[in-house]
C-alpha cells in the first residue's frame, strides 16, 4: 500500500483544476492506496463553504463526500487559513499545523501537486 498525497494550491472558482484534483483523489483510492488531500495557499478556499454552482461550475460536494466515506484524511494548512482569515472549513477537513503538512508530504511515496 502506498501513501499518496494530493496537494491543492489554486483558487477554486477560476478553474476546474481543483474539482479534477478531488475527482482524481477519489480514483487513486481504487487500488487500496492511502490517499490524503492537503489544501494549502489559495487552495484552502476549496475547503470552505463556497458555491461553485453560482458560476455554473459543478459543486465539489460529491468528491468531498466520497473522500470522507473512503476515510481519506483531508487537511487544510493552518498558516494558509490564517493569512486569508479563514476560520471555518467544510465538514471532515481538519486544520493542520505546517509541521503536520510537511510530515505528511515527506512521508508520502507519491506527492501530486495539482
Amino acid at each position: 500500500m502506498k501513501k499518496i498525497t494530493v496537494i491543492v494550491r489554486n483558487l477554486p472558482l477560476n478553474t476546474r483544476k481543483n474539482a479534477e484534483a478531488l475527482r482524481m483523489s477519489v480514483g487513486l483510492t481504487l487500488r487500496e492506496d492511502k490517499v490524503t488531500v492537503i489544501f494549502m495557499d489559495d487552495g484552502v478556499y476549496t475547503a470552505t463553504h463556497i458555491k461553485p454552482e453560482l458560476l455554473n461550475f459543478t459543486p465539489m460536494d460529491k468528491a468531498f463526500e466520497a473522500l470522507s466515506m473512503l476515510k481519506c484524511p483531508l487537511f487544510a494548512d493552518k498558516p494558509s487559513m490564517q493569512k486569508r482569515g479563514i476560520n471555518k472549513l467544510i465538514e471532515n477537513v481538519k486544520p493542520a499545523e505546517r509541521e503536520e503538512i510537511v510530515r505528511t508530504i515527506t512521508e508520502s511515496d507519491i506527492a501530486i501537486p495539482f
Partner: peptide, 20 residues
C-alpha cells in the same frame, strides 16, 4: 481509460512523477 488506470499506474510503478 479512466482514473482507475491512473490508480493502477501509481500503485504499480517504482517512481511516479507528476507535472501540473
Amino acid at each position: 481509460g479512466s482514473q482507475y488506470d491512473n490508480a493502477c499506474i501509481a500503485s504499480n510503478v517504482d517512481r511516479f512523477i507528476s507535472f501540473g
